[in-house]
Design a protein around this nucleic acid. Sequence first.
DNA 1: TTGCAATGTGAACAGTGAACACATAATTGC
DNA 2: GCAATTATGTGTTCACTGTTCACATTGCAA
Lengths: 207, 207
Amino acid sequence: MASPPYHHGNLHAALLAAGLVAAQAGGPAALQLRELAAAVGVSPSAVYRHFPDMAHLSAEVSRAAREALATRMLSAAAAVPAVRDDPGEGAIRRMQAIGRAYIEFAVSEPHLFDTAFMAAGAAPSCADDPSAWGVLNDALDALVRTGMLAFARRETAALVAWSAVHGLSGVLVRRMLPAPYQPNDAITATLAGVLDALDVRQPQEMR
Amino acid sequence: MASPPYHHGNLHAALLAAGLVAAQAGGPAALQLRELAAAVGVSPSAVYRHFPDMAHLSAEVSRAAREALATRMLSAAAAVPAVRDDPGEGAIRRMQAIGRAYIEFAVSEPHLFDTAFMAAGAAPSCADDPSAWGVLNDALDALVRTGMLAFARRETAALVAWSAVHGLSGVLVRRMLPAPYQPNDAITATLAGVLDALDVRQPQEMR
DNA sequence: TTGCAATGTGAACAGTGAACACATAATTGC
DNA sequence: GCAATTATGTGTTCACTGTTCACATTGCAA
């Protein structure tokens, strides 16, 4: 019958975890101080010992969501098998894999995606690691290294790829896709369109 | 000394207008029932005679913001002078003009842009008129009609263009643009990238 | 003129994040 | 080993939010 200890032990991390669960289920609006405190089994005011503000807690949950996205992209890239004697082909496949992983994360976890890029966050700024932006740039560097992407296009490429993939994700999450389009077709079309814009040679047999 | 009349006369429209002003200044979070009611000079509960819910009011303000965006695009397209004996050239310039107008609206009115596509809205659905989606498709039809865009690409084109332009707008609004990039360069690069992806012939002298 | 529907008021209500003094536990210094 | 200090959690209270209710006021119609 050990009574619950007065001190939680790791409230900061526990609140973050609870926040991630809540955000996954209900989006940024579900990040409520009292609910998170209750979920962890602690009084509301205890939160203020670990976060100066509810906004800071939300921002950290948002950051965690962004890290989850980046992790998903990384494992998708790692799952692409190396192509024998054709590193360029491998680089292209990895590029497509991370793009698809980004969009599929958004579609499968729309609330987390919303949380990752929510408006009321403290400037995501793309520069924090591990970030989706970093993963994208690594993939682009690989394309340049293997001669699949012209160096002159390198700078623009990142922006176009990011805008298109992130933009389509937002469209799918908000269910803004106009009637005739099917999500899966839209994804492949956009990914192909991006590679096209970068003047990357595309293998034919990809779907 | 006419005392203020008991009945406002046009509360619905007045609340919408006040909502648009508030959203322009402070984004979706600034859409607060009591503030809007006070701004119009009416008690909070009066709002419920015209909107079933605060969410419905917000949704209508969001819709108005989307209409403002579409209007901005239309007037940008109308401002493009016709090119003598080269309707295709004109179509391309109009295409670029609406894209640039979209992004510049987002940059110059970030809060309105956020409001237009806010998460907690009742499914924007892209299909309402006049919508940015409609304007884009008209421009694409003109490109096909003048032979500047292959019909086979028409379907994909809309999606890629929308995703990239909307995505970049979001990036700029959230100030997610990584350090080395300049907003203006990013805009031109993205617009050029989109036209590239559509295999549209691009005039050289455009900046 | 009388009745009725539309519209606006004011006082409630539950819910939110935040701030306060206070209680408890862990840690440190002697 | 004991006292003092610091870190952490509790309960209560506050101002604020959207919402609801009974009631007041007005305009319109029969």
